[in-house]
Design a protein around this nucleic acid. Structure first.
Lengths: 360, 360
DNA sequence: TCATTTAGGTAATGCGCATTAGTAAGGCCC
DNA sequence: GGGCCTTACTAATGCGCATTACCTAAATGA
């Protein structure tokens, strides 16, 4: 009774100390027996039995908070996005990434903490509270516009971070889709079909995904010995007005037999192209082959399958987790570029014979 | 330099002690300043400023595990699902719930921790590691099959838990959609249109959502003075084979002027009904009115809008958070039943006159 | 002038666990 | 009979934080 009148079961829960008392051993022994005893301390089988028995009797369950505090890592991976992680507008959803992130994190024994840039309610005035991610062991960053300064700050502090999507920011680790290789593959497919005059439509900016695609486009052409300078790439800042039925007819008249279009956030380029073709009465692969360098926007996903490639979003999420875990646990750094799957659709075929000279 | 040579930033993270050193105060003061100071210790404004400044400089973020250990709360809400939270099969997705959960959690000043039951890798022999959620202050449980034993254990230990979806398990707090009221409303709508012979198609099990809908169905009929016994409800375990064009014609011939169908996980009942009607050449609301007690499966969402109601998934998520927060912070318990919005579609109209006797 | 209050802090402690550095008892050997 | 294993365990410590119980100096009151 001189037991220092402590509540035996605080909050209804047994602690290791309670188990220890019942089993007539020290708390250390309980910890050793019940936690894997990685340090190889020798403990008598009989004693272990007593401890386990006592634990069962008391219904002992370890307190994860204490565990994580004690061994100073919490097996949490932060996921930070600067917009809401679960936006209502589905097209901007990170869902497919999260599928892979969750799965891989689970596989690696990590849980996920979601931070939302928008949950900055209490974050104070300046910017999203990226700092809060420090709560986790490391952090994945989603979203197209990363605030370089804050991220750099984290990195300088040695906080492990991985960005989803290639970034030109130096020192920011990333995983990204291999747009260049995938685009080259699509071009190669067209070349094999016999196309020689292939046109790339891209947005008029310098975003990395666009640049990579163009790079792959040129690489693909070059590899096929089809390198043709500037006019093979058409840039547009306003797809709706630039890509018209007339424009398409002009291209065909100029000898173009295939068009590849970028996937953009809005899907505007692809949508404009389809609309223009429709108005021109052209039905690929007839008269013209078309390919989409990515996945179609949701509203166009239902129709004919377009040749192109699929961004392996969930694989990308998984790769990001592996990359982060490698930094955390010190394993082998995985390849940052994730392969995109070629998608053979119904929009590409052999070139039309009535353009220029006969194909064969 | 007698500072006991401890690493200033262990693992890149600043602790209160580090902040204290920089601000030239004690760790206690830091805790007081940054942690709300609920005990009303008087601290000079200037000092507080220094502390906050130092904290910002070091990028200090509290360690949730330590917070939780020290005072049993860390402003984290756990979200536990027994299947993957972000499954590949979209129809089982918790996404819409998460939208509301995230938003409301942010509003209430909580962050989210996702625990995945499927990460059973280290879960050991007995069941998913539900126990890990104890890291958070409380926990939302998603998923249709809750492992009662484990959940009960949490609840017994006084750990706050809220289940998304009504559950018959005693003592398990929940929030759920008010299917009964919503169904009654749909029935009322039909009755007002003049329907008297209304048929309910439901799955052949005793799931709570099904039972609630039937209850609402009967209530709705009764309220309209239209109570008719058994034959008003059609149960099927195999919608594809039971609900055929012939079956529909039989029902119409028997006088049925309206059919209401359950929303099921797979959407099978509704899909079967639409197919059957199509084959029978019946186009609601012509000859027959139909209503869907829920939302259509994704692949059928595009067509004509069906009369029925929408499960307010995101509102439900938000309600769950509020319920949990009420348990955590001791506020007023909100209403567990969330209202479903009536959806006036194009599939219901006045009853056909050529059945039975003229309607008016 | 001495007692008391107020402002402005700090030292000490413990949450539940994991880990490290012991200790103690016995056996073995030269 | 002293040195040295081996077996079997425990005491002590710290993880990062919140809280409680002090402490000191200056201001105030009678």
């Amino acid at each position: 009774m001189s037991e220092k009148s402590r509540t035996p079961l605080r909050g209804g829960r047994a602690r290791q100390a309670d188990v220890a008392r019942l089993a007539q051993v020290s708390q250390t022994t309980v910890s050793l027996v019940l936690g894997g005893n990685r340090q190889g301390v020798v403990i008598n089988e009989a004693t272990q039995g007593r401890v386990r028995e006592a634990a069962k009797t008391l219904g002992y369950v370890p307190d994860p908070a204490a565990q994580r505090l004690a061994n100073s890592q919490n097996n949490l991976i932060g996921v930070f996005s600067f917009t809401a992680t679960f936006p209502t507008a589905v097209e901007h959803s990170y869902y497919p990434f999260l599928v892979g992130i969750e799965e891989e994190a689970a596989k690696q024994g990590y849980d996920l903490v979601l931070f939302t840039g928008s949950s900055a309610s209490r974050a104070g005035a300046r910017g999203p509270a990226l700092n809060r991610v420090r709560l986790a062991d490391g952090c994945l960053i989603l979203g197209r516009h990363l605030p370089a300064a804050q991220v750099r700050r984290l990195i300088e502090d040695g906080f492990p971070v991985v960005h989803l999507g290639r970034t030109a920011e130096p020192d920011v680790p990333w995983v990204g889709a291999d747009y260049a290789a995938a685009t080259a593959e699509v071009v190669q497919h067209l070349v094999e079909l016999g196309h020689r005059a292939i046109l790339l439509i891209r947005e008029d900016d310098e975003a990395l995904p666009s640049t990579d695609r163009e790079l792959g486009f040129r690489t693909g052409l070059a590899a096929a010995g089809q390198w043709r300078p500037a006019k093979a790439v058409f840039r547009t800042a306003s797809p709706e007005t630039d890509i018209t039925a007339d424009w398409v007819r002009t291209q065909i008249a100029a000898g173009v037999t295939a068009i590849v279009a970028e996937e953009t956030d809005s899907g505007a380029v692809w949508r404009a192209l389809l609309t223009a073709l429709d108005q021109a009465g052209i039905h690929p692969p007839h008269e013209l082959s078309i390919a989409l360098l990515g996945s179609p926007p949701a509203d166009l996903a239902g129709g004919r399958v377009a040749t192109g490639f699929d961004l392996p979003r969930s694989a990308l999420g998984a790769a990001a987790v592996r990359m982060l875990v490698a930094r955390l646990a010190g394993g082998q750094r995985p390849e940052p570029l994730v392969h995109c799957e070629f998608r053979l659709g119904a929009t590409t075929g052999v070139p039309a014979r009535d353009n220029n000279k006969p194909a064969r």
